[in-house]
């Protein structure tokens, strides 16, 4: 009985640590708290690469150098 209590106590205390903040992955896919990523929509059809390309392109459009050259 005492051993059981001590075991339980040890277990509970072991939990009192800062949990890891690393993004959780299981088998290569995101397994954290539920949230639909931006690419899971009709626009991107679940293609992460497409979305990343889009965002990258948008970021590039912010460049003043490209703007001055008349690039965008």
């Amino acid at each position: 009985m005492l051993a059981l209590i001590l075991l339980l106590a040890a277990g509970t205390l072991a939990g009192c640590d800062e949990p890891s903040q690393d993004v959780m992955f299981e088998g290569g896919t995101y397994a954290g708290k539920p949230d639909t990523p931006a690419w899971q929509s009709e626009t991107f059809n679940g293609s992460r690469e497409t979305w990343e390309q889009e965002i990258k392109k948008r970021s590039a459009l912010q460049s003043e150098y490209t703007r001055l050259k008349g690039g965008g």
């Binding site: 106590a9 509970t12 009192c16 800062e18």
Partner: peptide, 21 residues
């Protein structure tokens, strides 16, 4: 998140055990 949680938790577990014993 460090000592207060750990020592506090320990206290709340050990004191009842000591009293029970």
């Amino acid at each position: 998140n460090g000592p207060v949680t750990l020592i506090g938790g320990l206290l709340l577990i050990l004191v009842p055990i000591v009293i029970a014993v």
